[in-house]
């Protein structure tokens, strides 16, 4: 069954928000889960994390960044009213939401999107929620107001200092720890290197740190084994055991290497189709 796009909105350079009509998935989905999308008959299957559901319209909200062929093609050619050929979910295990006490939710880049429902559920469960949102620059930052409305405190940080303070999310996390803020649990979602560094920051303090991994997947339903990650010395599968894991146990170097394995094929595919991912586009004003 193909799924109709209800809304499409630009959040930043190369960052787009979609609302997809999928009432059954919207009903079942919980924070932390993802969907697999395939655009057309020749398309690949890519995982995208669910941001939010709109029960009134049976919608599933996704945030898409133009990084590979499929995401570039989606942004270039799929608008409200169009249909996605395949849309499968909700997949993966939901986030473990409980009343932990003080939680810090760290989102980097497009990782801010999947962090949002987790922060909301943590708040609803009675936690104090501190958000740390990081982006390359001010224009790449989104959901700032949504987090501000929800969280007990929000820290903004950009690589270039164009919004909030200058630096990285892990710097803010380190400072929160230094100031003696009692933190019971951390969620860190963003580029693997950010999650790795955040886990390194909390490790000496023994603060449980949850990360959400986005390895290369093919089927995404517990069959192919392509999304395997070493966690605590054991082979785990992001599609059915994850996508969230204990950040202190994840072999991030292995994960990053496996993410790079198809870089040349991806570049070739983008070139053949004359598509420009955000890494190549000049950060034009919009």
């Amino acid at each position: 069954m193909s799924r109709r796009i209800l809304e499409k909105k630009q959040l930043g350079p190369c960052i787009w928000e979609y609302l997809i009509e999928a009432p059954d998935i919207a009903k079942a989905a919980r924070a932390g889960q993802f969907v697999i999308v395939r655009l057309h008959e020749k398309g690949e299957r890519i995982p995208l994390t669910i941001v939010e559901t709109e029960q009134a319209v049976g919608g599933v909200r996704l945030v898409v960044q133009e990084v590979g062929k499929t995401t570039c093609e989606m942004v270039a050619g799929f608008d409200a009213g169009d249909a996605l050929l395949d849309f499968v979910g909700p997949l993966g295990e939901p986030s473990e939401i409980a009343r932990y006490g003080v939680t810090v939710c760290i989102g980097g880049g497009v990782g801010i999107a999947p962090l949002y429902p987790i922060a909301r559920e943590l708040k609803a469960a009675g936690n104090r929620v501190i958000a740390v949102l990081g982006a390359r620059s001010a224009d790449c930052l989104f959901y700032e107001k949504e987090f501000a409305d929800l969280c007990d405190a929000v820290h903004i940080v950009t690589d270039d200092g164009s919004r909030g303070e200058s630096g990285f999310t892990s710097d803010v996390l380190g400072r929160l720890l230094d100031t003696g803020e009692k933190i019971d649990r951390v969620w860190a979602i963003g580029p693997p290197i950010m999650m790795k560094v955040c886990a390194d920051v909390t490790r000496p303090h023994g603060i449980p740190t949850v990360v959400s991994l986005n390895p290369i997947m093919v089927d995404g339903t517990g069959m192919c084994g392509g999304c395997r990650v070493e966690v605590g010395g054991k082979t785990r599968f992001a599609c059915v055991d994850g996508p969230e894991f204990d950040g202190h146990q994840v072999d991030f170097d292995g994960l990053m290497a496996r993410l790079r394995f198809y870089t040349r094929s991806e570049t070739r595919l983008l070139d053949e189709h004359e598509l420009q991912p955000c890494t190549r586009k000049q950060e034009e004003a919009w």
Partner: peptide
Amino acid sequence: TRTNLMRAYRFPDYDTPIR
């Protein structure tokens, strides 16, 4: 799965690669 289901043997006509 890459080869049969996703037709990686027809990359780059099909999008899924195999290396």
